[in-house]
Amino acid sequence: SQQPDTKSLAKQMHEAYLKHFHMNKAKARVFLTGKTSTPPFVIHDMDTLQHAEQKLITQLLGNMASGDVSTLREREVEARLFLFCQYASVATVTELTEFAKAVPGFAALDLNDQVTLLKYGVYEALFALLASCMNKDGLLVAHGGGFITREFLKSLRKPFSDMMEPKFQFAMRFNALELDDSDLALFVAAIICCGDRPGLSDVSQIERIQESIIHVLRLHLLSNHPDNTLLFPKLLQKLADLRQLVTEHAELVQDINKTEDASLHPLLQEIYRDMY
């Protein structure tokens, strides 16, 4: 009797995922495998970055405070890239919020609990989704318009050079699991609906939602990847890896925020403040 429920929840989450995230793994793979008529512009050094920036700035202008745009040109390259990362993160947090609302039971939770789940879940979800846009050589950016190489990101000055390499290392292990967007939709829902985030008031209600998602995820993986029976436990292990990745990322961002002349977007400040 659980079979129809399982299928409908998996389908519902997959549809919400395709609706709310402008980039998904299927789309990203088309760009990353060079199957588009206009291949992404490759950013691999300062010259190609400057060339790409004009386009990136135009794309971001709609989202960006005018003060940020006018001071952008005067900033050093690392600070500019940090700012771009922040705007991309804010956009993804907005998408994740809409996706979370589509998880059955989420919107009925206490509003403060919803905030807590997002505060602790969005970066874990973001890094899981970011893997779809990565291969061993680089990262797809600007809606598939650009590809920034891993080597270039590593060549930035410290501490900015330490920002992306751990995400690439995670992404290579994560991408080896060969999940598709329907799997990722349930995985992201499981990340968000997590009963052990600090400060939750109605833990049992969240655990009920979490259990139903995890149950559906397990069955969905068995039917979608019949040859890989260990996929479910492997994926649960990735939840722990993501938590560690976010802890380290939060420390790095707090460090950059203290030592560099780089301001943090108010939404991201809310998320990082008193996080761990």
Partner: peptide, 20 residues
């Protein structure tokens, strides 16, 4: 609540863009 006012707003208003 004040500490997370943008997250509150995102959760409550489905189509409101983040005030940047």
């Amino acid at each position: 609540k004040e500490k997370h006012k943008i997250l509150h707003r995102l959760l409550q208003n489905s189509s409101s863009p983040v005030d940047l």
